[in-house]
Structure formats: C-alpha cells, structure tokens
C-alpha cells in the first residue's frame, strides 16, 4: 500500500486546481547577504515557466530551494499542494525521484563515462539493467544531437557545449514529472540552442512535464516559455506571458529583455 501524503495531496490538488509548484514568501540569506527576499511563484501543471533576472539575483538559489538542495530561512514550497519543507525525509526522497535538474555548470560525474552519467538515475532506481543502459544512453544522446560513440568518452573529453547537452540528456533520461533547467542553452551555438529549446518544449508537451527554466536568452525564453517571471533583488517583480517579453509594458522587464543600459535596473559595477 502506498498511501503517502504526497498522493493524498495530489488528489486534493487536482480537485482544487492548485498549481503544480507554489512558492510563497521564500527568504534566504547567506551571512549578511539577503539573496531571496520573499519570492512568490506559481507554476501550473504541464506549463513551462522561464525565470529571468540579472546575474546574481538569486535564480539558481530559488531553484535549489525548490528541489531541497538549500534550506530556505522562511517561506513555503508546495508541490502538488503538499508542503515539501515539512515532508518526512522518505516522502521527500520519493518526490525527488520525479524531479529532474540540469545544473548551470553541468555537474557531470567525471569519474564515470558519459553513458553512465546519462542513465545514472535509471540505474540508481533499478529501472534498467547495466546491459541495456548503453543502448538507452545512445537513444537519449541522439535526442540532444550527440552520436552514440560519445557515450564511451569521459566528461572531461567533451567540449563545454557537449557537456551541457550530456547534462541535459541526464536530466531528462528518467522522464521526470518536474524539470528544472538552469541555463540550458548558455554556451551552445545558436542552431544547437534552438534544437535544445525544441527538445525542452517537447519534454513538456509530450511527457506532460512541468518545467522551470532559467535563461538569459530572450529568443529562447519566448520559444520555451508559456509564462515568464522576472526576479530582481530577491523578489519576483513581474510575471506574464513569455510571448510578451520585449513589449511587456513593465519598465524593468522591457529594459532587461531589450538589453538597454538605461532604465530602472541599475547594474552595480564595482571598481
């Protein structure tokens, strides 16, 4: 019998139309530095949200809080209507099984060959045998535009963009329910960037997954996002449709999306 509180929550969530991910009043400080200062975020099930914001504005920290890698100081995070911060460790691990994450720097295991990196989660969950893992890895690598032979290399032998694509393959190989992409297309050439964007859209549409992506690339944001949110000084300052980026009618967002130096956002340049 698997009557976990998460599943009860799921039923309740579907009944009430609660968002898949709901973040309220998230605060986190590192020492004296208040990085998150009350982040509120809602992502509907099956939707793709892009998060924008200046460098160091706390985008990665927000995502790490949601997946439980960083403990926030205050606030609540609900997934399927269940507060993950108050979950038992076991429930939280079960929740983690359904979540995928692409780290900003790839974070590939350099002691393992690429194929083992890609199938790591499937192997860890015993969903696949080691014999079949190579074939499965080749299949997922093909989706991110890499040849099957790449599977036998070690991550250190790959270019930066290839590492990113392997990391992406690893994040989606286990077909997670919720996926986080931290700058999926940074460091890729424009064509490969578009291919990866297509792949992300595909994941969301085909698997019915819910995605949160961080990106600095506006074209990419419009391609992959249903909604967009802008974070500034530790708060969400704007949320709206991703298509409106560039002409959103919000001075901050427009300055950011169009890359203008003049505007309400003053970049702090230290000498």
């Amino acid at each position: 019998m698997r009557d976990t509180s998460a599943e009860q929550g799921l039923g309740a969530a579907m009944a009430a139309g609660v968002p898949k991910i709901r973040v309220r009043g998230l605060r986190k400080a590192f020492g004296p530095k208040q990085v998150l200062d009350g982040v509120d975020l809602d992502v509907a099930a099956g939707h793709s949200m892009v998060v924008l914001g200046g460098s160091g504005s706390g985008k990665s920290v927000t995502i790490k809080c949601i997946i439980g890698l960083i403990d926030p100081d205050e606030g609540s995070i609900e997934i399927d209507g269940v507060d993950v911060l108050r979950m038992s460790r076991r429930d939280r691990e079960a929740m983690g099984d359904r979540i995928g994450m692409l780290f900003q720097n790839g974070a590939l295991f350099d002691s393992l060959p690429v194929w083992e990196n890609v199938c790591f989660k499937l192997l860890a969950q015993n969903r696949i045998s080691r014999d079949k893992a190579r074939d499965k890895a080749a299949e997922v690598l093909a989706q991110v535009g890499l040849a099957a032979s790449v599977g036998d290399l070690s991550p250190a032998e790959l270019s930066g963009g290839m590492q990113k694509r392997v990391a992406l393959a690893r994040a989606i190989a286990a077909q997670p329910d919720i996926i986080f992409f931290d700058e999926p297309t940074t460091g890729l050439d424009p064509i490969m960037g578009a291919v990866i964007d297509g792949l992300i859209v595909d994941c969301v549409k085909r698997l019915g997954a819910t995605a949160i992506s961080i990106t600095h690339d506006m074209a990419s944001a419009r391609r992959i996002g249903d909604t967009a949110a802008m974070i500034h000084k530790g708060r969400i300052v704007w949320t709206g449709p991703a298509q409106s980026l560039g002409h959103a009618g919000n001075a901050m967002v427009d300055q950011f999306a169009n890359g203008q130096r003049e505007g309400p956002i003053q970049m702090e340049l230290r000498r």
């Binding site: 790490k64 997946i67 890698l69 994450m101 780290f103 350099d110 989660k121």
Partner: peptide, 16 residues
C-alpha cells in the same frame, strides 16, 4: 571537487 562543482547536489537529484 565534486562538492564545489555541484556533483554532490547532482547525486541527490539523481535519487542517490
């Protein structure tokens, strides 16, 4: 090195 390159965090997200 695994810690500072997020590989330990990655393990957690990969059910390990």
């Amino acid at each position: 090195t695994m810690r500072v390159t997020d590989q330990i965090d990655a393990l957690t997200t990969l059910s390990t």
